[in-house]
Simulated scan of single mutants.
Amino acid sequence: MSESRTRRSRSAHAARRIAATILGWLLVLAGIAALVLPGPGLLLLAAGLAVLSQQYEWAERRLEPVKVVAFKTAADGVQTWPRILASVSGALVLGALGVVWGLRPDAPEAWPLADRYWLIGGWGTGATLILSALIALAIIVYSFRRFRGVEDPESAAEQSVRKD
């Protein structure tokens, strides 16, 4: 192989490594934000750690505990009908909020700021809320099918992590 081809190959490898690192950190940061904001926080955090674990041992060590907590939370969330209904209702409200945000109705009379600060982001923000709602519903369906009616949901969650 020629020297220039080897150099290009190394450059491409370095670029992929940098891109993966940036993607991993973006997912980790989005996951941390989504732990307190609407969105699949543990899922994004686990995805970011999974990407980073391909290159960093520290991320690989932290991935399994995050996945265990994510699966335990998923299992716990479908153990009673009130929890299931609350989760589904929350996801539907989030999706409806995304639609309203995208349609961007006029600011109410009581809005204290300029109208341009009402529902900032338009369809960009609305689509993100709708996507979060769809992801939440998918996770609820998965959790219901995987963990509902299981005698020991914590044990089932830990087994799910080990399967991966």
Rank of each mutant, 00 (worst) to 15 (best):
M1K: 11
S2P: 09
E3H: 14
T6K: 15
T6C: 04
R7M: 11
R7F: 08
S9K: 12
S9C: 06
S9Q: 12
R10M: 13
A15D: 04
A15I: 09
R17Y: 00
R17N: 10
R17H: 11
A20H: 06
A20Y: 01
I22A: 15
I22P: 04
I22T: 12
L23S: 15
G24D: 09
G24K: 01
L26K: 00
L27G: 04
L27S: 11
V28S: 01
V28E: 02
L29A: 13
L35P: 00
V36P: 01
L37D: 12
G41A: 07
G41E: 05
L43N: 00
L43A: 13
L45I: 01
A47M: 09
A47E: 00
L52K: 05
Q55S: 14
Y56V: 00
W58G: 00
W58N: 01
W58M: 03
R61C: 01
R62S: 10
L63N: 06
E64Y: 03
E64H: 11
E64N: 06
V66M: 02
K67C: 12
K67E: 14
A70K: 12
A70L: 14
F71E: 15
K72Y: 01
T73K: 11
A74E: 09
A74H: 03
A74G: 14
A75S: 06
G77P: 01
V78S: 13
Q79A: 07
Q79D: 02
T80Q: 08
W81S: 15
W81Y: 05
P82Y: 07
V88G: 03
V88F: 08
S89N: 09
A91F: 04
A91R: 10
L92R: 00
L92M: 13
V93L: 15
V93Q: 06
L94A: 04
L94D: 01
A96Y: 14
L97R: 09
G98E: 12
W101D: 08
R104S: 15
P108I: 11
E109H: 09
W111L: 10
P112T: 05
L113R: 10
A114D: 15
D115C: 03
L119Y: 07
I120T: 13
I120A: 08
I120L: 13
W123C: 07
T125C: 02
G126T: 07
G126F: 14
G126P: 10
A127I: 12
A127G: 05
T128C: 11
I130A: 05
L134Q: 02
A136M: 07
L137Q: 08
L137H: 03
L137K: 02
A138R: 10
I140C: 03
I140T: 09
V141T: 06
Y142P: 00
R145S: 07
R145Q: 11
R146V: 04
R146Q: 13
R146W: 01
R146F: 03
R148W: 05
R148F: 06
G149T: 02
G149H: 03
V150C: 05
E151I: 11
D152Y: 04
D152S: 12
P153E: 01
S155T: 10
E158W: 00
R162W: 00
R162Q: 13
K163N: 04
D164V: 12
